[in-house]
Simulated scan of single mutants.
Amino acid sequence: MLAMLTAPLGIFSGLITPVQTAVNTRLGRSIGSPLRASLVSFSVGLLAMLTLTLVVGPYPLVPASALHGPWWMWLAGVFGVTFLTGNVLLLPKLGSLKTVIMPVTGQIIMGLLIDMFGWFGTQRQPIAPLRIAGTVLALAGFLIAVAGVKPRNHVNDAATGQGSGKTSNLSTLLWSCVGIAFGMCSAIQTALLGRLGVALQSPVKASLASFTVGLAALALVVAVKDRTYSLGDAPKKGNPWWMWTGGLLGATLVMCNSYLSAHIGTGLTVMLILLGQVGGGLVVDRFGLLGVPRRHVAAAQYGGIAIAAIGIILKAM
């Protein structure tokens, strides 16, 4: 029953993701780097969460339950940055389609494993055929919904230039496995956010902690990869004001993640967010929102969303 009541919140959280992606893409175009755009987004999110935490509390800001909690729960932000950086690394290696499909696969698999074995302090959920079937059905639906985004001849658009024969196939296979691993990092972040939210007695404070650690990790990544923190043309006049709001959207998503994971489990949280994310992405593509080029959305993609929704219902039963 709780899963059904919180389902709209999970879907809403997922809907934030394609909007945030479009916003950060616009910012990245002005800055000249997706990583530096994410760094700005993290900074804005951190300031928003700090302000909200100081206003709403509860106090003390770090209760004893958090001080005596497991050290690994503070690494939620690190796993989030790993997932973010992974997408940047995967795109030139796998192409846009597999860069979406592989992490989604990893998210769902890891979410299922976390629930089954009660990893990261989550409540263990018994293995049931209906839940397994729901997970498989949801994964199939998401893959159908995503696979229609680009034509088949573009599936290996990045891999085709990496050589030929066994070397190219092996490279693609290895990067595909890496993509699944990056997706698993996202599911782990969701579980850690739930654990952190319980320890800090607030999803808002959990978000603040995640953004603080994540910002430090991302700043290190930018220093190594970009070797500059320049904002490029972003501060100049003529740029839309909304391109600076990605951090606010991200903060909202992280808060919802923390709350949902603690109440309905990691696996179901991941699936609900993916439902909103993929469905929202199709809407953004279909209508060309926020400066995103309009793309045709096939009927099969809508069918994939419906299949995924049925799978999620089975998973929740």
Rank of each mutant, 00 (worst) to 15 (best):
T82W: 05
G86K: 08
G86C: 11
N87K: 04
N87S: 13
V88Y: 08
V88Q: 07
K93A: 14
K93C: 04
G95R: 14
G95C: 12
S96L: 14
K98C: 07
T99V: 09
V100Y: 08
V100K: 03
V100I: 15
I101A: 12
I101Y: 02
I101C: 10
P103I: 13
T105C: 15
Q107A: 09
Q107N: 06
Q107F: 09
I108G: 05
I109F: 14
I109M: 14
M110V: 15
L112E: 02
I114C: 11
F117K: 08
G118W: 10
W119V: 01
F120R: 01
F120D: 01
F120V: 05
G121E: 03
R124N: 00
Q125K: 10
P126K: 05
P126C: 04
A128C: 02
L130V: 14
R131Y: 04
R131F: 02
I132Q: 07
G134N: 11
T135G: 15
L137R: 02
A138C: 10
L139D: 04
A140W: 03
G141C: 04
F142L: 09
F142N: 05
A145I: 08
V146Y: 05
V146S: 06
A147E: 07
G148L: 08
G148C: 10
V149T: 13
P151L: 09
N153G: 01
H154A: 09
N156M: 11
D157T: 11
A158P: 00
A159P: 00
T160P: 00
T160E: 05
Q162V: 08
G163D: 06
G165R: 09
K166P: 01
N169K: 13
